[in-house]
């Protein structure tokens, strides 16, 4: 029953120019480099990877907030670049990490939530009122809280506002970039449970970026691992956590801090030298830090392989 995937990303790249420092030439920073994937309706794609590896940039391109240097995003088969801003907003919406800085501090919660609806310019006031009230209730906020301003809500409540604002246009895809990393574990659980409920009830598709691997394991149906702008591994969630194939994925999983006192901090041997995105290593981008590197890793770009039906891996190791 294979249909057109709801989201498909084809050879997407994004480069930034940056000043190299005094007397140095401008450098080209490849934030996202030739990423392709498809996502079926109702699924949740988790994206994990090193800080600065291009997750947010990828998310912004999918949202149409950042123009790709090359490649294209397709939503329900239609190229994103063929849609205008309003049409895009009806299909894809973001939920960002810090709800505080992304909410206008002077507006009431109701006004914040209804803004995307008002921006469409085609809805009657009573329809806006009705939808806003229904959504407030749906995300667990009271009408009274709807009259407050953001500073009068807790972090968890503000994240509910961000979710309500993302859902008001009844989009098909929601891009969550670190939606719970500012929240404590209990409130995080409430928000994740809410997102999951909404996904099932409204048949939403999520792209879910997070540094919290336990959270990703819980919410994602499939996971993509990024390193320096590349997708280095992708697999069904359970398989990825059970059999991580890429050495970077393995290092990532080994670095998780479980709440067990006395174990200290893991050192997975990646070294303290971080990669420089404006000066990419030759061969495999991970090779200078990889504990399993083979001689060819320093010179040849690793091939993209499919070790199983669902798994995608970019590595010389077999």
């Amino acid at each position: 029953m294979s249909t057109t995937p709801i989201l498909s990303v084809s050879h997407l790249s994004c480069q930034f120019k940056s000043q190299g420092g005094l007397f140095q030439p401008t450098r080209l920073l490849r934030a996202v480099d030739d990423i392709s994937f498809t996502l079926e309706e109702g699924r949740v794609l988790g994206i994990v990877g090193e800080s600065g590896c291009g997750k947010t940039t990828l998310a912004r391109m999918i949202l149409g907030l950042q123009k790709p240097s090359s490649g294209e995003v397709f939503v329900q088969g239609a190229p994103l670049s063929s849609l205008d801003r309003r049409a895009r907003a009806r299909l894809i919406q973001p939920v960002f990490q810090d709800p505080f800085s992304s909410l206008n501090p002077k507006q009431t919660i109701k006004d914040i939530i209804s803004l995307p609806l008002r921006a469409q310019g085609t809805f009657e006031p009573h329809e806006i009122e009705r939808r806003t009230a229904a959504l407030l209730e749906r995300v667990g906020l009271s009408l009274e809280q709807g009259l407050r301003v953001p500073s009068e809500l807790s972090g968890g409540q503000r994240q509910r506002v961000a979710i309500a604002r993302a859902l008001i246009l009844e989009p098909r895809i929601v891009i969550c970039d670190e939606p719970t990393s500012a929240l404590d574990v209990s409130v995080q659980a409430q928000i994740l449970n809410l997102l999951d409920e909404l996904r099932r009830d409204l048949k939403l598709t999520y792209v879910f970026i997070s540094h919290n691997l336990a959270v990703v394991e819980h919410v994602a149906s499939e996971v993509m691992v990024m390193y320096l702008g590349r997708m280095v591994e992708r697999n069904q969630t359970a398989d990825l956590f059970k059999t991580p194939r890429h050495p970077y994925t393995q290092a990532l999983l080994a670095s998780v801090l479980t709440p067990e006192p006395g174990l200290g901090l893991p050192d997975v041997g990646l070294g303290d030298i971080m990669p420089d995105p404006a000066h990419l290593p030759t061969g495999c981008r991970f090779h200078p830090r990889c504990l399993k590197a083979l001689p060819q890793c320093a010179t040849q770009e690793p091939p993209l392989r499919k070790p199983t039906d669902h798994a995608v891996l970019e590595c010389h190791l077999t």
Partner: peptide, 22 residues
Amino acid sequence: RGLIDCVPVPGKIKAGEPLGSI
């Protein structure tokens, strides 16, 4: 105690079940 019980630990979460919260 509630807080410690809410911590999602990788490998120990059942898919499809809601996470514990207070």
